[in-house]
Amino acid sequence: MRQMGIWSKYRLRLERKRRRIRSLRKRRDIECVIDRSSQTKPNDIFLFATLRNEKHRLEFFLKYYRRLGVNHFFFVDNNSDDGGRELLKNESDVSLWTTTASYKRANFGVDWLNGLQSKYANGHWCLAVDVDEFFVYPHCDTRPLQALTDWLDSSSAKSFGALMIDMYPRGNISEAFCDEGKNPMNVSPFFDSGNYFVERNEKYRNLWIQGGVRQRVFFKDKPERAPALNKIPLVKWSRGCVYVSSTHSILPRSLNIVYDEWGGQKACGCLMHTKFISTFLDKATEELQRKEHYAASREYKEYAASNVEMWTRFSTRYKNWKQLEDLGLMSRGGWA
C-alpha cells in the first residue's frame, strides 16, 4: 500500500506538470489591477484568495489576517460589482487581479491562484483561504503566524493542515446579520464538534474528511457526497507546487502528509468557515443562476428549497483554539 511503483510516481509527476502548465495558461485570463509585490521582503508571509461580491467581509478579513501577521495579500477578483475591487485597490498591502473568466473552468479558482503563486510565492510561506474562512492555529492568541512558520521551518515541515469547520447561527439565517467590519464568527458562532469522518486518499495521500453541519443537514440522504473538510491552507511554496482541488490536496504528494502516521499527533489547525450568515441567501439565489459552484451548487439548492434549522441542543458555541483542541479537532502537536 505504501510503496508506489515508479510508474504511478511518474504519472503523478506528469499530472503535476500538466496542472502547472494549465495554471500558467490560465494566468493569461486574469488582468492585473495593481501589483505591489515589489514591496515584499524575503521572509514575508503571503495570503492568496479569490473572491466575488464579498465587500462586506473584506474589512474584517484584512484586519483578522493582518493581526495574525500576514504581510501581503494577493487577491483575484472574479468580476465583482459591489465595490470590493475598489476597496482592495486602495489597501497598501494588497496586490489585485481581476477576471471575467469562468470560475468553474478555472478549477474553481485554483488555476488562478496556482498561477499567481508560482510567479510570486516561491520560497514564501503562503496561506490560501477564502474570504469567509478564518485560520485558527495552536497558540494563535499569543503567537503570530511567523512563530508558527519559523517552528515549521525548524521542524523541516513544508505544509500545515487544518480542518474546515462550518459555523452556523441559531434560528433563521436571514437574521444572522453581520455588519461590515464586524466578526462574522460572533454572528454565526455554532459548530458541530463530533461528527467528522476520516479516510485516506491513497492516490495523493491526503486525508479525506467529511462531516460537520453541511453533511448533517444538506447531505443527509447522500452523506458520501458531502464536501471535503480537509485543507492544507499553509504551505511553504516552491516552484512546481500545485494545488489539485481547492486546497484539499497538493502536489508533490509529500506536502499532503500533514498527519502523523505512527500513533502520535502533528500540530494542526482549523479553518472556521463563516458561510452561513444573512448574505448567504442572496448568494444562494445568485449562484443558482450562475451554476459556477462545486457539485452543481447542491447546498445552495437545498438551502433555497428548505429553510432548515441547523442548530440543535448539541451544537457547540465557538470560544477559542484551546476549546477546539480539547474537542480533538486540532492539536498543538509537539509545539509547546
Binding site: 505504501r2 480542518l163 502516521e261 505512527w262 499527533q265 502533528k266 492539536s331 502537536g333
Partner: peptide
C-alpha cells in the same frame, strides 16, 4: 509543559483521527 507536547507528538490523540493524526494500519 514540554513533556506534554512531547507526549502529544509521539502518542497523543488516542482514539482520534483528524488532520494531524491518522495512524497507519501497521502501527
Amino acid at each position: 509543559i514540554f513533556s506534554r507536547a512531547n507526549a502529544i507528538s509521539t502518542t497523543g490523540g488516542k482514539g482520534q483521527a483528524l488532520q494531524g493524526r491518522y495512524p497507519n494500519s501497521a502501527v
